[in-house]
Each structure stands twice: as structure tokens, then as C-alpha cells.
């Protein structure tokens, strides 16, 4: 069974909000739209967003680290928001595991938002229905687009490729591999919601330098010669001289 999801690399995210902006742009004009703002140029501008980038400071000054943390619906495999919906407007698709809201059925009772521990759902103040990330369901199956374009708007926008998109149930997909090799984890595992979206942790930056990167293997002008490196079995200086 397919479970589409985002894998977000906190090691790479620079907190530029491009995903937020592109998400809003695509979705306000797409199937979920319009996502109207209130007081956009006034004192307290507010509006519906599917995706937010938050910033946390980890550690104590001066040893601190800034972590940018994009947060959208995690498309839980056991979504607590779905069974509580009294109208059936909130549902999880069997074919790809995307959690969606049927805006024609939603009565705006907000009960699903109470049932989501992540605060992933936002009530649209104009349409008075609950809205949330759709994983760009109106994009990813649009065959009029090229293969490259058939990915969520946030993923397309990310300048650092901090967002990966794919099927986490397919062990060979890029997202599954990223989760496996970079120790991807889920948010608030204590509630057993089993979120599909995973986060890749901050990692120590390691220099990986291969030998041929130090020595010019092709060495076209013969300027650099091979360094005279003795073999391991050959006698060292200690063996042949007495100081």
C-alpha cells in the first residue's frame, strides 16, 4: 500500500519560507483555494496556511544552534483527526494515504483540529471550513504536467532540497532510503499517531575526501608527481636509523 509523505531534512533547511510562499500560491489558486487572508496589510495580518516554518534555538548561549523547522500536516498513518469527524468530511485516502478534507461536507465544527496534536489544521475564516495540507493532490496526479513538476509545490520551491517527496512504504524509494540512512524520525511518537512525514536530524558535517581528490589522478601536464608514499610493509624511518 502506498503512503505518500514528505521527508524534511532539518540539516539542510535554511528557513527561507519559500515552501510556505509557494504552497500558499499554488493552493490558493488550486483545488483547496482560495486561502484568504484577513488584514493582509493591516495591524495583525492573519490567514490560512498549510505550511509554516518555525525557528528554534537549541542550546545555551554562546553554544547555540538555530533550527528551522517546517511544519505541515504529517499525514499520519493512524490519523486521530479522521474518526472524530462527525460528517465524514475528514478522510484518509486508501490508495495513497493522503489525509484530506472534503470542503463541501465540512461543517466547521473544529473538532478535528482539537484531535490533532500537531496543530496541522487551520480553519479558513472566510469559507468557515477546516483546511490542511493536501500534499498537492491536485498537482501530483496531473498528467498534463511533466514528471518533474508532479511534486508538491513546497518540494518544488525548496532551494536547498530539504524536502523530499515519495512513498515511504516502498523500501527502495528515495524517501525510504533517506529515512533509513539519515535516521529519519517522527514527531511526538508518544501519541502513536504514526506520522507519515519524517524529519531528518541535524548531523555533524563530515568532510569526505577521497584520495583521488587530493592527488590529481589524471595529472595531464605531469606537474604534480605522485607523493612518495612508502607502503605499509616497508621499513619506516624508525626501523632504518638510530637517532
Amino acid at each position: 500500500m502506498t503512503q505518500l509523505a514528505l521527508v524534511i531534512d532539518l540539516n539542510v533547511c535554511v528557513g527561507c519560507h519559500a515552501c510556505v510562499t509557494n504552497c500558499k500560491e499554488w493552493n490558493t489558486s488550486g483545488e483547496a483555494g482560495p486561502m484568504v487572508d484577513q488584514n493582509p496589510y493591516g495591524k495583525d495580518p492573519t490567514g490560512t496556511f498549510f505550511n509554516r516554518v518555525q525557528t528554534f534555538e537549541v542550546g545555551e548561549f554562546p553554544n547555540t544552534e538555530t533550527v528551522h523547522f517546517p511544519k505541515s500536516c504529517l499525514h499520519c498513518e493512524d490519523p486521530p483527526c479522521v474518526p472524530v469527524c462527525p460528517t465524514g468530511a475528514s478522510y484518509k485516502r486508501k490508495e495513497d494515504g493522503i489525509v484530506l478534507v472534503d470542503y463541501e461536507k465540512c461543517i466547521g465544527c473544529k473538532y478535528c483540529s482539537w484531535a490533532c496534536p500537531y496543530g496541522a489544521r487551520e480553519l479558513d475564516e472566510q469559507q468557515k471550513v477546516m483546511k490542511k495540507c493536501t500534499l498537492c493532490v491536485d498537482r501530483i496526479y496531473d498528467t498534463t504536467m511533466t514528471e518533474e513538476e508532479r511534486r508538491p509545490a513546497c518540494v518544488r520551491a525548496c532551494p536547498t532540497s530539504a524536502r523530499l517527496f515519495g512513498d515511504i512504504h516502498d523500501p527502495h524509494s528515495s524517501v525510504s532510503r533517506a529515512i533509513r540512512y539519515a535516521h529519519g524520525y517522527q514527531l511526538m511518537p508518544e501519541w502513536g499517531t504514526n506520522p507519515a512525514n519524517h524529519y531528518l536530524p541535524r548531523r555533524k558535517t563530515k568532510l569526505r575526501i577521497r584520495e583521488d581528490e587530493l592527488e590529481r589522478a589524471d595529472n595531464p601536464l605531469k606537474i604534480d608527481s605522485q607523493l612518495p608514499k612508502p607502503g605499509k610493509a616497508e621499513p619506516s624511518l624508525d626501523d632504518v636509523t638510530s637517532w
Binding site: 495580518p45 492573519t46 490567514g47 509554516r52 518555525q54 525557528t55 528554534f56 534555538e57 542550546g59 483540529s113
Partner: peptide, 20 residues
């Protein structure tokens, strides 16, 4: 946020004017 450090402080929540 899945970061195991005893001291974490939120600096921004991604918006200033409030949200739902």
C-alpha cells in the same frame, strides 16, 4: 521537534499576526 537537547527555545512560530 525531535531534537534531544534539554534547552530549546522557540524564536518564531512562522507568523506574527496570529493564526487559527
Amino acid at each position: 521537534i525531535g531534537i534531544k537537547h534539554p534547552k530549546i527555545v522557540q524564536k518564531t512560530m512562522g507568523m506574527m499576526g496570529g493564526a487559527f
